[in-house]
Design a protein around this nucleic acid. Structure first.
Lengths: 271, 271
DNA sequence: GAGCCTTGCTCTATATTATGAAACTTAGCA
DNA sequence: TGCTAAGTTTCATAATATAGAGCAAGGCTC
């Protein structure tokens, strides 16, 4: 007997792809905090038979999606996943086009600049340019941060109506990261009206003590918000006036990027 | 009837994981040059039944490994692969530790710096810091380049003996990228002796016209070469004297990185 | 605009494939 | 030395993935 109708806590209904689903869940079971894991650990966590897990691990390893540490016998993510990740970026027009604009913005303002896209309920950073000042809060490529407590995330939601946002964030955990994190949907909606009007989003120590951020949306040729550009820095350098200044700069850069990826160009192509 | 014993041109013998193997091959069927593909294209290429491919595509899409372009109906790699790629990097001690060293090197010398690791017969770039000079040859994260025609690649082979290298590069295509590319194993081995002796590798327009590179190996706590640090620039700035200078700088940085990730530290830990 | 082709997706019977129990190794530890 | 735990391999079995047929939806040609 087996787990006939049992599907894991992952997504909804799957069918005809049990082995694949399990293997993908294995890959996702390697979090940042624990890069190296044992077969037994993972199999227990996912409720897989150890022989099943072992076989899937081997297949993933053969394909380079996992790699085995010969010293410890443990596994970690393999180079192939990095390769695919790089291909993902290379496939985004936006990423290549944004690079020089982000550098320019970071250089001019001296603060760190991020390019973020949405993934589920998180914003995920797909490009980072560190600022030139001495004190910099590190931000790493691939960093995730909840939509509702990040400037980048809010900017990505800018075109969503109240009802949409309510539906989207229904499943949000609303865990407080700092004392300033917004922890309920009503407060969020209430404050979001202003954000929507002015066209850029802020983050005033909502995700990290001492960190302030502004972000502006990037629109693709359909007018859909496809990314956001955010500028971040320590609170002692970013008073309200400076925030407004940086916001204006972020909006300018975001608009320029939008233009370059075809927003407002209509059907006319070429120069 | 189906392809009973038929395994694709991929790896060797697989068993008990057909569906998974096929799905992974689907992911790898999205090359940089063609980020968006149709189900039928891919299924034809891989020799899969269209219904099989369709099902696998859906499973991969549900898990975020692929994403569907609603306009065109085509698929591309999804955010999840990028997420995993970023986790891969985050899991490498080396990557985090190398960052500041690479920046420092790039700043001091003004030329672009790469951190590369080996993947099969390629070196793959896992970190890039652009130089400060005006003219810079772009290098992108995740860039692949054959071991035998790159400084980064040669540096990764530095500890290999002639026989090992011969075995490793037996399957190499030896395609010429420029007029200076080495195109046979014998010439490679012959010239490699010198490289091994001096402890750093060079690339004199072997991969790209006008590009010169030097690279030095990074060793982990087992003494194994785990990565290479390379410095590259246009030929008009990099005469032989400057190459030697940059090589020395690369070696110094690589040695420092080796030290920081535990090379030569033995069993003693802590400060 | 009608017909034709291609594509993507769903449904279902079938047998191929993945599964899990048990056995076997290897390693660490008392 | 024997014990426990982890990882891998083997193998009979049943559940799973497969491929065929059918359907709906677009694109092209005529």
């Amino acid at each position: 007997m087996t787990n006939t109708v049992d599907d894991g806590p992952g997504t909804g209904r799957e069918s005809g792809t049990q082995a694949l689903d399990r293997a993908l869940r294995i890959l996702l079971a390697f979090p940042r905090e624990e890069p190296e894991r044992k077969v037994s650990d993972v199999s227990r966590e996912l409720g897989l038979h150890k022989s099943t897990a072992s076989r899937l691990f081997r297949a993933l390893t053969d394909a380079g999606f996992l790699q085995r540490n010969e010293e410890t016998g443990m596994y970690r993510l393999g180079v192939t996943v990095f390769d695919l990740g790089a291909r993902f970026l290379a496939g985004l027009d936006m990423h290549a086009i944004a690079r020089p604009l982000l550098r320019e913005l970071a250089e001019r303002e001296g603060e760190s600049v991020n390019l973020g896209i949405r993934d589920g309920l998180d914003a995920i950073s797909i490009d980072v340019v560190q600022g030139t000042r001495n004190v910099q809060l590190v931000s790493r490529l691939g960093r995730r941060i909840p939509l509702w407590c990040s400037a980048a995330g809010k900017a990505l939601l800018l075109d969503h109506g109240d009802a949409e946002i309510r539906a989207l964030l229904a499943g949000a955990p609303w865990t407080a990261l700092t004392s300033r994190t917004i922890t309920d949907i009503d407060t969020f909606i209430e404050r979001f009206g202003e954000v929507r009007e002015r066209g850029w989003a802020g983050n005033d120590e909502e995700s990290e003590e001492g960190l302030r951020v502004v972000a502006a949306p990037v629109r693709d040729r359909m007018g859909t918000i496809a990314a956001s550009i955010s500028v971040s820095g320590p609170i002692f350098r970013l008073d309200d006036a400076r925030m407004a200044e940086l916001a204006a700069a972020a909006v300018r850069t975001a608009d320029e990027l939008s233009r370059r990826i075809g927003h407002g160009v209509g059907e006319i192509w070429g120069s």
